[in-house]
């Protein structure tokens, strides 16, 4: 067995406990948690969009985000302004998402009828995207500057990085856009209809395949943002999103698989838990993932629909 060439877990733990000045203030830990939580919520939003449109847990979601973050880096590295690079990456992610759905996912049929096939295909995508990224961008981590710079402001004695504030603001803009899309547009209405009853939607003339494709594309586009906010801390490598994926899943398990609000609330809760708990409970010191894992397990066992999910989702 050859292990993957790089460690896949170390960097996040480091960013919470080792790097920079020692975190000794509860509020500062909280700020870190909220900043991370915004990232988890972004990945969670992508997962929710896919779950809502296809009923599928996308295990390749993190790798899609990683891949499109590399696209962002490529544009940025070529000298494009960051916001344009990010738009480019989101567009790239969107196209890959669309392609992935068209080629690999849609031929599978109902994901809950053939769960093993879904797991295998998304894991095949996981491997494929990871390998493709290694092939294109190599195995040395790239440096992506923080979108909102490295400076920070001090509020009531607590230093808050602009990057963290930026993450929260971007998250809320995303949520607002998604909410408006689903609430006010014909496309949003069609996507909701397909998610609830694809056969009836088809009878009403909704193009089901196009809506599912759109869902995949949107999810991948949103995931790009999660990658863009993770990369400056963790270093942009092909294993960028593997931990974040589990955090993102924890977020939507807690919030409810099909709830946008739930992904946001869940993201923040998971972000805060995973930065606060290891500071106070030494047994979790090197595994900020453990509280998130316990959360996943407990929610699936005792309240499978999560906080805000609809009951009929709880097919657990």
């Amino acid at each position: 067995m050859r292990p993957s060439r790089k460690r896949i877990w170390g960097s996040d733990a480091k960013s919470l406990s080792g790097r920079g000045p020692p975190v000794n203030n509860f509020l500062e830990i909280l700020v870190v948690g909220i900043g991370n939580g915004a990232t988890y919520a972004m990945l969670g939003l992508g997962l929710v969009v896919i779950y809502r449109s296809t009923g599928l847990l996308n295990f390749a979601s993190g790798e899609l985000a990683m891949f499109s973050t590399f696209i962002v880096w490529t544009f940025w590295n070529l000298g494009f302004p960051m916001w344009l690079a990010i738009l480019g990456g989101m567009l790239g992610g969107f196209l890959i998402g669309v392609l992935v759905h068209k080629v690999a996912v849609s031929p599978l049929g109902d994901p809950h009828e053939r769960p093993l096939a879904v797991v295998i295909v998304t894991i095949g995508l996981f491997l494929g995207l990871n390998g493709a990224a290694q092939l294109i961008w190599g195995t040395v981590d790239k440096r992506l500057d923080p979108w909102f710079g490295v400076s920070q402001i001090t509020v009531g004695g607590v230093a808050i990085a602009w990057q963290k504030i930026g993450a929260v603001v971007v998250l809320f803009v995303m949520v607002l856009l998604l909410w408006a899309l689903f609430k006010f547009t014909k496309v949003g209405l069609s996507m909701r209809a397909v998610a609830s009853n694809s056969e009836s939607s088809a009878l009403c003339g909704v193009s089901v395949q196009n809506m599912l494709m759109l869902g995949w594309g949107m999810a991948a586009g949103i995931g790009t943002l999660a990658g863009v906010f993770s990369a400056p801390n963790l270093g942009l490598g092909t294993n960028l999103m593997q931990l974040t994926l589990v955090f993102g899943f924890a977020a939507i398990v807690l919030g409810g698989f099909d709830s946008i609000l739930g992904a946001v609330v869940g993201g923040f809760v998971v972000g805060i838990l995973s930065s606060v708990v290891p500071q106070y409970i030494t047994v979790f010191e090197k595994m900020p993932l453990a509280p998130a894992f316990i959360l996943i397990l407990a929610v699936l066992l005792f309240r499978p629909q999560g906080l805000f999910g609809s009951k009929d989702v709880a097919r657990v």
Partner: peptide
């Protein structure tokens, strides 16, 4: 069950090396 069990076991796999380090 199903996809959700896959999710939990995926988390176990991700967690394992961290537990070893801990």
């Amino acid at each position: 069950k199903g996809l959700y069990l896959a999710l939990v076991t995926l988390a176990v796999a991700t967690l394992f090396p961290l537990v070893i380090e801990q």
